[in-house]
């Protein structure tokens, strides 16, 4: 065994040196290469997962926003039609009230006018009666003075 190892130049000092060499290389590569690369890979994987999740959440939000918008439009529609209906009703009421008022006023004016016309007629009659009386008295006076 000894001669065999000797033939291949195996020397415990060199063996140890090579083992230490490899150990140093392993530690350095671990710290300088594997750890940073793995960290980068993990970070990127996390970032991608985050991105996918964000995109999903955004599309969900968009869908719910669409729903909300549709809701609001529907509600606004209902509101608008109520407003129009009530406006129409109140307009009709107002119109009826105005028409009624106008009719009443017209009726009152007519009545007034009739009353005034009647009064005027009565007064004209009275005046003419008085005139007739006065003329007849004048005529009688003229006749009487002529005779004398």
């Amino acid at each position: 065994m000894e001669t065999l190892l000797d033939a291949f130049g195996v020397d415990w000092k060199l063996l140890l040196a090579q083992a230490v060499n490899f150990g140093v290389l392993l530690v350095v590569l671990w710290l300088v290469l594997y750890k940073p690369v793995m960290k980068t890979l993990d970070e990127r994987a996390k970032k991608i997962a985050q991105g996918v999740e964000d995109a999903e959440r955004a599309s969900q939000k968009l869908a719910s926003a669409d729903d909300e918008a549709a809701n609001i439009v529907a509600k606004a529609d209902v509101n608008a039609s109520t407003i129009v209906t009530s406006a129409r009703t109140s307009a009709l009421e107002e119109k009826a009230r105005i028409v009624k008022e106008a009719e009443e006023r017209a009726a009152r004016l007519e009545k007034d006018a009739q009353a005034r016309a009647k009064e005027e007629a009565a007064r004209a009659l009275r005046d003419s009666e008085r005139e007739v009386a006065r003329l007849s008295i004048l005529a009688a006076e003229k006749v009487l003075t002529k005779r004398t």
Binding site: F8, G9, V10, L14, L15, Q18, A19, N21, F22, G23
Partner: peptide
């Protein structure tokens, strides 16, 4: 091409 190196690796 040196048994010291390969043997050290083998032992590790």
């Amino acid at each position: 091409a040196d048994l010291n190196m390969t043997l050290a690796l083998a032992i590790i």
